[in-house]
Design a protein around this nucleic acid. Structure first.
Lengths: 99, 99
DNA sequence: ATTACTTGTCCTATTTTGGTCAAATATAAG
DNA sequence: CTTATATTTGACCAAAATAGGACAAGTAAT
């Protein structure tokens, strides 16, 4: 599940048209369409508004949003998976903050 | 192991000073110092030169370089690990290219 | 025929990249 | 200690890339 797919799902489950949601987010509907199809990434600040509108957990939105950012960095890379693992090791290492 | 740590290691194992390596890469030594300490990321093109200079596998350098890029995206994020996993799923999914 | 959605082209303001240089610190040598 | 030599750090910068969008025209669905 990508951030775009989730936004689309939330919107449709609420029976809302793109035009409506776009208006609430103060963006054009063309842009929202691209967001829902993961061709553009929505502004991070707008996640808050979305989480309120659809009463969904902000943290879940943020995780998918961030995943999309990561994905954009590696999508054309043949060693993407290896790099992800290395990055994960580094994060884990620092997160254990051995004083 | 980060890309900076590896570059430093390769250089020291070859008994080379920062000044020398910096000259071969045509960058200042201040910049190289930052690269070795992961405060700056070296240009991707320069990885080729490094792999030739120290006779090391380019793919390994590239993986660490990419890992650093990813790391920079998520380093201050509390849900970094979750996002990494989501991104990995997306890559894996697309890599299986089910026609 | 409308309404809804998608897509392509274009734009500019902000951010990031890749770097310099000088000064500050370490380290080593005499 | 003193002095070279090596490395690190901070402040700054131009150029390149990206973010975040608008808008019009094209498709799809109703």
């Amino acid at each position: 599940m990508t951030i775009g797919q989730l936004i689309k799902q939330l919107r449709e489950n609420a029976g809302m048209k793109q035009r409506e949601l776009a208006a609430k987010l103060e963006i054009g509907e063309g842009f929202l369409s691209k967001v829902e199809n993961d061709q553009k990434l929505i502004k991070r600040d707008d996640l808050t508004k979305i989480s309120q509108l659809f009463n969904t957990k902000l943290s879940e939105l943020e995780t998918l949003w961030l995943a999309n950012k990561i994905y954009n960095v590696i999508k054309y890379e043949s060693n993407a998976i290896d790099a992800l693992h290395v990055a994960e090791e580094e994060i884990s290492y620092l997160t254990k903050q051995k004083k």
